[in-house]
């Protein structure tokens, strides 16, 4: 299912497609934020910049989806929720690319999955 970007997020998706792993960082109070938003939820200002962060985190949780919610997908697949090392307030989702099932707290690294020239998705695999 292709993401439907909005006006706040389009640039994040463009940068992700270019292989950048970035978050917004508030110019005023340095709070990192993801998903992308115009305003800082902490200090309510709207000056910010893109900042590359380590594409690394820890598994917060995961599911193995069996019910065929997606048309044409009948095999179970694993979705992980990852808390980012350099922005612990932020979580990202992605599919799991490890040989073994995830466990809570496992250190993981992002891997880009190129769909086409305009879209890359972010999956996760165990660190190391």
């Amino acid at each position: 299912m292709r993401p439907v970007a909005d006006r706040d997020s389009a640039e994040w998706w463009r940068r992700t497609a270019a292989g950048e792993f970035v978050l917004q960082r508030c110019d005023s109070c340095a709070t990192p934020r993801f998903p992308t938003r115009a305003y800082c939820h902490r200090c309510r200002t709207r000056e910010w910049h893109w900042e590359p962060v380590a594409p690394a985190g820890r598994v917060e949780s995961w599911i193995v989806s069996h019910q065929p919610f997606l048309a044409g997908v009948s095999e179970p697949y694993t979705v992980v929720m990852v808390r980012l090392d350099e922005a612990p307030e932020c979580v990202m989702y992605g599919n799991w690319r490890g040989a073994e099932p995830p466990v809570a707290g496992l250190p993981v690294r992002a891997c880009f999955r190129k769909v086409d020239e305009e879209l890359s998705l972010i999956d996760w695999r165990p660190l190391g």
Partner: peptide, 24 residues
């Protein structure tokens, strides 16, 4: 707006979302 960061990974249905929190 959150859906765009989740649905591409096949994650969007309420049972999936609640399962994620249950696992945590």
């Amino acid at each position: 707006p959150e859906v765009q960061y989740q649905a591409p990974y096949g994650y969007f249905a309420p049972p999936q979302q609640y399962a994620m929190f249950a696992r945590a």
